[in-house]
Computed example of a mutant assay.
Amino acid sequence: MTAPLDVSGAEYEAAPEAVLDASQAKAIQGRSLGQIAWMRLKRDKVALTGAGVVIFLILVAVFAPLIVGWIGHPPTDFNQDLISSETMAPKDGTGIGWDHLFGVEPVNGRDIFSRIVYGARISLLIAFLATLLSVVIGTVLGVTAGYVGGWVDSVISKAMDVFLAFPILVFAIALAGIVPDSAFGLSGDALRVSLLVFIIGFFNWPYIGRIMRGQTLSLREREFVDAARSLGARGPYIIFREMLPNLVAPILVYSTLLIPSNILFEAALSFLGVGVRPPTPTWGGMLSDAVRFYTIPHFMFFPGMAIFITVLAFNLLGDGLRDALDPRAR
C-alpha cells in the first residue's frame, strides 16, 4: 500500500489537469447570422469575384474624372485628325493605341474608353436610385398588405396586378418623348436621369412587393410577433421593429438581382433614343450609334462588353448572397 501524503500545515490545492485556469480558458462564443452568412460567402469564390467586379465598377464611376484625366481624353472632344475623310472611319481601322485604349468612334473620333468610363456613372446611378425607389415602395406596401390583410391587402394586391400588366417600355418611350427640356425645376441631364429613375423605379415595385407580402404572411404567424402583440405593441412597431429586420436578407438579395435588370432597361431606353440625350455618354446610346457602323466591330464590342460584365457581376453576387443568407443552407 502507498502511504498517504502528509499535507498538514501546508496550503495544498488539487485540481484536475483537464480544468484550465480561468485566465487561460477561452469562452465559447456564438455566431450571429451575419457572421454565418459572411463565412458562407467567403467560401463562394464566384460570388466574391462578382463582388470585386462590382466594387471596381463603382470606383470607376466615382473617380471617372480622375481616370479619364490620367489615361484618357475628355469624352466629348472630337479627334478629327484620326478619322479618314473618305471612309469616316479611324485611319488605322480602330484607332486603338496607348492614347486611345479602346479606340475612337467613327465620324467624330471621340475616345471610346473615356465614354465608357463616364457611361458607367449614368448607368450605375440610374440603376441604384431606381432600385432604391422600387425597394422602398415595394417593401412598405408589401409588408403592409401582408400584415394588415383584409381590404388593404386586396387593394394593394390589385394595384400590383395592374402595374405588372402595364406596358412599362411603351409608357417610358411616350413619357420620355413628351417631357420638355426643362421641367420641375430641372433641366438637361438632371431632368433625364430623374425621369428615368422615376419610370424604372416606380413601375418595378410590384416585383419586390409580392415577395415582401409573401414573406410577411409567413412571419406574422410566428411566435415573436404574437409575443409582441401580447405585450401591447402596435402595428407600426411590429412591422418596423420586429418583422422588417427579418426581411433584410430577401430585400438585399432581390436588390442585387434588380440592379442589373435596371441597367439593361436604362440601356434599352438609351438605345431607343429616349434616355439621357447626347453628347452625354451612355452605354445604350453608344450601342445605338454603333448600329450604323456594323463594319467597325470595336465600336459596338466595348460598350456591349461593359453591359455584359456589369450585369453578370451583379447576378453572380446576388446568387452568392442568396445562398449565404439562406438559413437552410449548410
Score class of each variant (00 low, 15 high):
residue 34 G to C: 05
residue 233 A to L: 07
residue 327 P to W: 08
residue 99 D to T: 13
residue 221 E to G: 05
residue 53 V to P: 02
residue 11 E to R: 10
residue 314 F to V: 06
residue 186 L to V: 06
residue 257 L to E: 00
residue 167 P to I: 09
residue 283 W to Q: 00
residue 270 S to Y: 05
residue 233 A to H: 06
residue 7 V to M: 08
residue 64 A to N: 07
residue 152 V to C: 07
residue 76 T to M: 11
residue 171 F to W: 14
residue 213 R to D: 02
residue 219 L to N: 01
residue 89 A to L: 15
residue 256 T to C: 14
residue 178 I to H: 02
residue 41 L to K: 03
residue 33 L to P: 01
residue 19 V to H: 02
residue 221 E to D: 10
residue 249 A to D: 13
residue 87 T to C: 12
residue 46 V to P: 01
residue 313 A to H: 01
residue 62 V to D: 03
residue 86 E to W: 11
residue 316 L to N: 00
residue 6 D to R: 12
residue 149 G to K: 06
residue 200 I to V: 15
residue 177 G to H: 10
residue 246 N to Q: 14
residue 78 F to I: 08
residue 6 D to P: 05
residue 67 I to Q: 04
residue 33 L to N: 13
residue 73 H to W: 11
residue 221 E to C: 00
residue 154 S to P: 01
residue 149 G to Y: 07
residue 222 R to T: 15
residue 101 L to G: 03
residue 72 G to H: 06
residue 175 L to W: 14
residue 95 G to I: 05
residue 168 I to F: 14
residue 23 S to M: 09
residue 160 M to W: 06
residue 291 V to G: 00
residue 218 S to N: 09
residue 174 A to M: 13
residue 213 R to C: 03
residue 302 F to T: 01
residue 9 G to K: 07
residue 193 V to N: 04
residue 90 P to G: 11
residue 246 N to A: 13
residue 187 S to G: 12
residue 18 A to C: 03
residue 106 P to D: 04
residue 20 L to S: 12
residue 208 I to S: 05
residue 106 P to K: 07
residue 150 G to V: 02
residue 29 Q to M: 08
residue 174 A to V: 15
residue 238 I to W: 10
residue 166 F to D: 09
residue 42 K to A: 11
residue 303 P to G: 06
residue 105 E to C: 06
residue 229 R to P: 03
residue 315 N to G: 04
residue 7 V to R: 05
residue 104 V to H: 02
residue 281 P to Q: 08
residue 1 M to V: 13
residue 220 R to I: 13
residue 176 A to C: 14
residue 23 S to V: 12
residue 73 H to Q: 15
residue 8 S to G: 05
residue 99 D to F: 09
residue 324 A to P: 06
residue 37 A to I: 04
residue 35 Q to D: 12
residue 310 T to E: 02
residue 128 F to K: 00
residue 197 V to M: 04
residue 93 G to Y: 13
residue 53 V to I: 15
residue 48 L to N: 14
residue 290 A to P: 05
residue 44 D to F: 06
residue 154 S to Y: 09
residue 328 R to K: 15
residue 71 I to A: 15
residue 34 G to T: 13
residue 22 A to S: 13
residue 79 N to T: 09
residue 28 I to D: 08
residue 138 G to N: 06
residue 69 G to L: 11
residue 287 L to P: 02
residue 46 V to E: 02
residue 264 L to F: 15
residue 292 R to T: 12
residue 226 D to C: 00
residue 177 G to L: 08
residue 290 A to H: 01
residue 284 G to K: 03
residue 298 H to K: 10
residue 158 K to Q: 13
residue 224 F to A: 10
residue 114 S to L: 09
residue 114 S to I: 05
residue 305 M to S: 14
